Computed example of a mutant assay.
Amino acid sequence: MKMLVLLTTAATLAFSAQAFAAAPECAANASLDARVAAALAKPDRPASETAIDDVRRSEVRFLVAHVKPGDHVLDLGAGAGYSTMILSAAVCDGSVDSQNPEKWDVDFKARPAREALAKARPNIHLLTTDFDKVPVPAPLYDAIFIGTIYHDTYNFPGHDAAAVTKDLYSTLKPGGIVIVVDHKSADGKGAAETNTLHRIEKATVLTDFKAAGFELAEDSDALANAADDHSLKVFDPVVKGHTDRMALVFRKPK
Rank of each mutant, 00 (worst) to 15 (best):
G190V: 04
P69S: 00
H66D: 08
T12A: 10
L216A: 06
A110S: 12
G241W: 08
D105N: 13
F62D: 02
N29K: 15
S98R: 08
T165F: 03
S231K: 14
V96Q: 01
H198G: 10
D187I: 13
L6Q: 15
G188V: 07
H242C: 08
V205R: 06
P139T: 07
R56Y: 11
E201R: 03
F131M: 08
L216M: 09
V60A: 06
Y154C: 13
L206G: 02
T148P: 01
T204Q: 04
A21F: 06
D182T: 03
D229C: 07
V164D: 07
E201M: 09
A90C: 04
S95G: 11
A110C: 11
A47R: 13
E115Y: 00
V134F: 01
F20Q: 00
D130F: 10
F20W: 12
F20I: 06
P135V: 04
K189F: 10
A51S: 15
N155C: 12
G77L: 07
I86K: 02
K254V: 15
T129G: 05
N225Y: 07
L32E: 11
L4A: 12
A143R: 08
R61L: 12
V180F: 02
F62C: 04
A224S: 09
E218D: 15
H72C: 04
V73C: 00
L216D: 05
D44R: 03
P157I: 10
D221N: 12
N195V: 08
A30V: 12
I146E: 02
T207K: 15
H151I: 08
A211T: 14
R251C: 10
T8Y: 11
A203N: 12
V164T: 13
N123Q: 02
V239Q: 02
H159R: 13
L7Y: 14
A120Y: 01
A226I: 09
F214S: 01
P174T: 05
V55N: 12
E215A: 15
T12C: 09
A116R: 02
A37N: 12
V178H: 00
T148R: 14
A211K: 11
T153I: 12
R57P: 09
T194C: 14
I124S: 06
R199L: 09
C92W: 00
V36K: 01
N100L: 00
S170H: 14
K119F: 09
V238G: 00
D160Y: 04
A89I: 06
N100H: 07
A224E: 05
T128Q: 06
A34E: 06
T196W: 07
D107V: 14
T9R: 15
V234S: 03
K109L: 13
G77C: 10
A14N: 13
R57V: 13
A212G: 02
